[in-house]
Amino acid sequence: MLSVAELTGQVDSHVVSDPCCRPTVRLQPAVYGAYRAMAAAAQETGLAIDIASGFRNFSRQQSIWNRKFSGAAPLYNVHGQLLDADTLTMGDKIEAIMTWSALPGASRHHWGTDLDVFDPRPFAAGTRQLELIPAEYEEGGPCHSLALWLSQHAADFGFYFPYRQYRGGVAAEPWHLSYGSLATDAHQLLTVEVLAEVIGQSEIAGKDYVIACLPELKARYIDTICDAADAHGDDTWIFG
């Protein structure tokens, strides 16, 4: 069981690196074991898989959040269209951020159970950069074949797609995998009370508004996900 500090990304005592990936990519040991088996199976079919992002700490998530809140990074709607931050209310701005970026303390990447995956081969020459956008995983995209294979086989190794379908909260992310058993346990530990305490002690931009609306924000953006049984084996992604 994760401690509150581990659950909310304030410490990294629960994650490790592994020779199969870059040293900066860290996950819980059991997750790495399942990932190695999945990567080997993908390779046997002529595919390649790599991890773009694993564990992400609270400080990093806060930096992402604050840059978007301040206007230093762009905001997009669920369809990927650029928004004019100057025209948004406080609530609209926070909803736009949470459509694509997790609230610090509530990111599934804090848990060491979740990873963003891609096919590294189309990017190896350095002529194109991975963006982690839906078009890269749709038909004609560089990661489409991998996405199809994962939709059929990720569950065989204990993984599922929490953002397979847009359900009014986080946009669909065909690159985001969760290791089911451990992620479910972590999700159950992440209560409104835990989040309120962590956010209240932080330097998160707009935190007074976030804390005031936390039950609603948690229900929409943290709790409204696809579970391990949703659309298993279905190649259709619902982006919004």
Rank of each mutant, 00 (worst) to 15 (best):
R56A: 05
S70R: 14
W100K: 06
D116G: 04
T236H: 08
D114I: 00
Q188Y: 12
R108H: 05
Y76T: 10
I211F: 09
L83R: 06
R60S: 07
C213Y: 08
Q62Y: 10
C226K: 02
V210K: 00
P104A: 01
I211P: 03
H232M: 05
T24S: 14
F161G: 00
F55Q: 01
R167S: 03
T24K: 14
A102W: 00
Q62N: 08
P122E: 03
D114Q: 02
G240P: 05
L189H: 04
C143A: 05
D86I: 14
P74Q: 00
Y179I: 11
A102K: 00
Y76C: 03
S13W: 15
P174E: 11
T89F: 13
F159R: 01
G180R: 06
F159W: 04
S53D: 05
T191P: 14
F69Y: 15
I204N: 00
C21R: 10
D235M: 09
H144L: 09
A37Q: 14
R60Y: 07
R220Y: 08
H153S: 07
L214R: 03
R67M: 09
V170W: 00
H109R: 08
P23M: 03
R36G: 02
T8I: 08
D12K: 11
A212H: 12
E203G: 04
C20F: 14
D156N: 10
